[in-house]
Amino acid sequence: MAFWNRRPAAARGIERASRLRTVLAWGVALFVSFPFLYLATSGLKTEVEAPKMPPAFVPVPEFLNGIPFTYTPTLQNYRLILAGDFMPYFVNSAMATLVSTLIVLLLAIPAAYALTLPQTTSKRNVLFFLISTRFLPVVGVIIPIFLATRFVGLLDNVLALIILYTAMNLPIAVWMMRSFFQDLPADVLDAGRMDGAGTFHELTLIALPMVKNGVLATAFLAIIFAWNEFLLALTLTTTRAATVPLYMISFMSAQGLWYAKMSAAGTLVALPVVILGWFGQKWLVRGLSMGAVK
């Protein structure tokens, strides 16, 4: 029996998988990860080395050169990218993502809270209306949005993305925050009411501090969706306000197929929210299921 199997059987919770299943799970995980792990790997290679086959996975120090499946990692691609025009795109993405997320929280938190109060009427209608807008295909509205943005002169302006990302993430944020508010012990909120807290104080002094994790989770999800958004950015921005996915597109068409640099750029573009998602893993399900599944 392996050393990690020696935990007491009484340690309850989910039970232990068989050895076979462990090997299988690891196999599947590595298989599925190949595209992005290899992309990240290629970003650390030289332009000469990157397209070479057989694929080299294992980074080794220089003096071990020549062993099959190994390569010597270098940060040169990243240096080149960061020295190039990457930063403005990054700043645009960060702006659009963070500002929209902030607005989303400011709008969603009070709305979600009000949607848990007994005196609010038509809660069901509001919630279902909100979420159905999130399921509306973006292409269903892209034409007038494009025309309207052009009309008011917001084409290629981060503000346009901020507004759209706000509307895009609001419904999910409301549903998600509501599910967190609803999990609060009713007694504590009742105690607040007895102690003289009005709706405002009840929200700010009692409910909100108790759902800090929920706010964080909602922010995570909004950030992930906004950062990865492509279609709206593609149609509404060109140069000044373009975000990182567009950096990727323009990089590929301008520089041609520099395999290593492209891999490095791709890694750099995807990494921020991938890391965020890793940290926010346990909350993902709530956001993805609109709070219906915990």
Binding site: A17, V28, A29, V32, W227, F230, V269, V274
Partner: peptide
């Protein structure tokens, strides 16, 4: 596969959800 406890379950789960977190165009590019 990943529901029951096993060695490195956390890492395996993380690897498995990553394709969903990666920006779609980068995933397609990869």
């Amino acid at each position: 596969l990943v529901h029951d406890r096993f060695f490195g379950r956390g890492i395996v789960r993380t690897l498995l959800i990553t394709p969903f977190l990666i920006m779609p165009i980068i995933g397609a590019l990869a």
